[in-house]
Design a binder for these strands. Structure first.
Lengths: 205, 205
DNA sequence: TTCTGTATAAGTGTATACACTTTGACGAAA
DNA sequence: TTTCGTCAAAGTGTATACACTTATACAGAA
C-alpha cells in the first residue's frame, strides 16, 4: 500500500459518496485500515488536500470539503470559463483518431451511467473531449474543479431524468464534434454545465 | 520552525532567485538548515509541490520547477483569462476603501520596485486589485500561476526599462480604477500581462 | 576517448515512540 | 436550562532509526 494507492482508495470513497462532505478522516484509523503507519497516510491526505477534496489544518482533524452555495457558484463559473475555452481549442485541432476516442469514451459513459462508477465514465468522456487541446495545466485545473464539485453531488442520489439529460448532452456533444459545429458544440457544453450547476444548487437549497 | 515557516523560507528563496529552476532540495540538508527532522521538511516540500513551485516524484530528489516555452505560454493564457475576468468582477464592486487599499499597495510596490522584494510588492498590488471580487478560489488559482511564472523570471535580472514600464502600468491601472474606466482598465491589465509574458519568452529564446 | 557496469555514498520512505493539541463529555455555577 | 471550566480520551506533530532506492564516481571494455 503506497501513498498513491491510499490516495486513490480515499478519493474513490469520497467521490463515491461513502465519505460525505464534513466527514472526518482520522490518520490512525486509516493507517489501521490500510495496514501502514500514519506517515504514508499523512502523505495521502496532503495529496487529497492539494486536489481540493479534503481540508487540512494544523492540529485539526482532516475533513472532506463542504462547499457553500457561493463556493459552488464560483467553482462552476470557473469551470464554464476554463472548460468552454479548452473545448474550443480542442475542437480546432481534433483529428479522426480523437473523434474515435470520444466515441469510445461516450460508449463507456453510457455503459456506466446508471451504476456506481458513473463519475469515472463522465470524467473519461470530458477528458477525451479536451485532450486534443494539449493543455496539461488547464486540464489539471479543470480536473480539480470537477472533482471538488463531484464531492458535493456524491451525497445526493441522482434522479433518472437527470441521468437522461446528461446522456443526451454527451451524445449531442459527440455529434456536434463530428459535424464540426464548433460554436453549437461550445454552447451545448455551456448548457450542460449550467444544468449540472442548477441541479446541485437545487439540492443545496 | 514549523512546516509553514519552512515553506515560506523556501518560497522566498525560490521566488528571489536564490534557488534557480532545476535546483535540488535535499531533505537532509534542509532539515539541518532549519534545525528540525526531515518530517516537517517533507511536509513543507509537499506544500511547495501543491503550489507548483517544485517537482516531487517518489524516491527522486525534489527540484525547483523548470517550465518549457509551451508551458509558459499556457500559464500566461490562463492568467490572462482568469485575471482579466477577476479584475472585471472586482471593478464592478469597488468601494472607496478598496481604492484606498490599492493606493497603499501601489505606494508599497513603487517603494520595493528596485530591491530584492519587488515580487512581494507586485503580488500585493495585484491582490489589492482583485480583492473586491471576493473570489477565493479564483484568487488562489491566480496566485499559483503567478508564483509559477515568477520562479522562471527570478533567475534573470530585470532591466531598468522593464521596471519602468511595470511601474507605469501599475500607476495607470490605479488611475483607471479611480476613474471607473472598466474596459480601459481591463485592456491595460491585458497589455501588462502580455508584456510580462513576452519579456520572459525573450529570455527563454 | 567514450561507453558501460558496479560499488559506494547520498537520498528517500516509513515504522515506532513520545510530546503536544484538540475534542467531547461531565459536572458546577449562573 | 444554559454556560462555563475541567479532565480524560483521541488525535496530531515530529524526532529517531533503519530499510530501500537513486545518484555518482570510478574501473575496465570497446
Amino acid at each position: 500500500m503506497t501513498p498513491e494507492d491510499i490516495t486513490h482508495a480515499l478519493e474513490k470513497d469520497i467521490l463515491g459518496g461513502a465519505l460525505a462532505p464534513g466527514s472526518v478522516l482520522p490518520q490512525g484509523a486509516l493507517a489501521a485500515r490500510f495496514g501502514v503507519s500514519r506517515i504514508p497516510v499523512r502523505d495521502a491526505l496532503a495529496r487529497l488536500a492539494s486536489a481540493g477534496l479534503v481540508e487540512l489544518a494544523p492540529n485539526r482533524r482532516t475533513r472532506v470539503v463542504e462547499m457553500s452555495r457561493d463556493e459552488v457558484i464560483e467553482a462552476y463559473d470557473l469551470r464554464l470559463m476554463l472548460e468552454t475555452d479548452l473545448f474550443t481549442r480542442a475542437l480546432a485541432r481534433m483529428t479522426p483518431q480523437d473523434l474515435d476516442r470520444i466515441d469510445y469514451a461516450l460508449a463507456r459513459s453510457d455503459l456506466e451511467a446508471r451504476n456506481a462508477n458513473w463519475a469515472e465514465g463522465d470524467a473519461l468522456f470530458h477528458a477525451a473531449l479536451y485532450a486534443p487541446a494539449q493543455r496539461p495545466r488547464q486540464q489539471a485545473m479543470i480536473d480539480g474543479l470537477r472533482r471538488a464539485c463531484r464531492v458535493q453531488i456524491a451525497s445526493y442520489e441522482t434522479l433518472p431524468e437527470d441521468t437522461d439529460r446528461w446522456l443526451a448532452d454527451h451524445a449531442a456533444l459527440r455529434d456536434l464534434c463530428r459535424a464540426g459545429q464548433t460554436t453549437a458544440a461550445t454552447e451545448r457544453l455551456r448548457a450542460h454545465l449550467t444544468g449540472a450547476r442548477d441541479t446541485l444548487l437545487a439540492h443545496l437549497a
